[in-house]
């Protein structure tokens, strides 16, 4: 197709602009990535000499190992509980009409408006007032509150896109409601459910603000452990940690992407 000079100009201007924006977005990561290989114990930029010793340090530092274990546990339980509860809520919201539906919906979505530190503070005050122990389940509870709205949304949208005819066909063929739910509804919702769960796990894994209020030395999550580290040391270990962190989350996101392709395999797109 014929393109005029001004078309070409626009084309190039567009590409340059896009590159600049993308560059701006990943610039902090690039800086951190480079800094993580700095030999010197002071976080200076650009580095004078190179080393991978901070990666070794990151792996050997005990609080990080402990934090990772806690974070993984909290993310798994938090996302799991949020998935079951969220899917149930979404199903009820999609299929039934009842009084105070809007109010309940508002309450469910309120964590989107209420900042994370408020949620953390609230749970802290509550557990203190009720003199309840603060253990790993407290952290899980806070994370469930934070990720639940996202799971409800994600499953609700999947449900809305699911045509009723599938379930009606199954019912007319003699399928009782529970049987239809297990053999038709859930399999057709599966990609949405798995994507929602992984999304929730990533949110939980990244959560810092609310966790800060409710963790103890024993239950601190990885982001909190990193925060505590940086208060004591100023070496590039944290830069190395950041790189590892991004790599792990990116791997998870790739998994999500795989699942979206799985959707095509199941023919429910």
């Amino acid at each position: 197709m014929y393109k005029s000079f001004s078309d070409h100009l626009l084309d190039w201007a567009g590409r340059i602009l896009l590159t600049l924006i993308l560059g701006f977005l990943v610039l902090p990561f690039i800086v951190v990535f480079i800094a993580s290989f700095n030999e010197s114990a002071i976080l200076s930029f650009p580095p004078q000499s190179w080393s991978t010793r901070w990666y070794v340090n990151a792996f050997e530092y005990r609080d990080f190992g402990n934090g990772l274990r806690n974070s993984l546990r909290v993310a798994a339980f938090g996302a799991g509980i949020a998935l079951v509860a969220g899917a149930g809520f979404a199903y009820v919201f999609n299929r039934y009409d009842f009084a105070f539906k809007n109010t309940l919906n508002g309450i469910l979505l309120s964590p989107l408006i209420i900042p994370n530190f408020t949620i953390g503070l609230g749970v802290l005050v509550l557990t203190a007032a009720a003199s309840m122990p603060r253990n790993v389940w407290t952290v899980v509870a806070v994370h469930v509150i934070i990720v639940l709205p996202f799971v409800v949304r994600s499953v609700y949208v999947s449900l809305q896109n699911l045509e009723r005819a599938y379930e009606q066909a199954a019912e007319s063929l003699g399928g009782r409601p529970l049987h239809v739910l297990l053999t038709i509804t859930l399999p057709l919702l599966l990609p949405g459910l798995v994507a929602g769960a992984i999304f929730a796990a990533i949110l939980s894994f990244n959560e810092f603000t609310a966790s800060l209020y409710v963790v103890s030395q024993r239950t601190e999550t990885l982001p909190v452990a990193m925060y505590n580290y940086v208060r004591e040391y100023a070496d590039p270990t944290l830069a190395a940690m950041s790189v590892l962190y991004v790599a792990a989350v990116a791997a998870l996101l790739l998994l999500v992407h795989k699942i979206f392709r799985l959707e095509k395999v199941l023919n429910v797109d």
Binding site: E163, Y166, A169
Partner: peptide, 30 residues
């Protein structure tokens, strides 16, 4: 599910996650 009625929908509503044979056999399994 107790009316013993067969239905064919405009968009077919075949279960995408089952083979043709399993689709047809659904009402026999229930």
């Amino acid at each position: 599910y107790q009316r013993e009625i067969g239905i064919v929908f405009q968009n077919y509503a075949l279960f995408p996650h089952m083979s043709v044979a399993r689709n047809v056999g659904y009402g026999l399994r229930t």
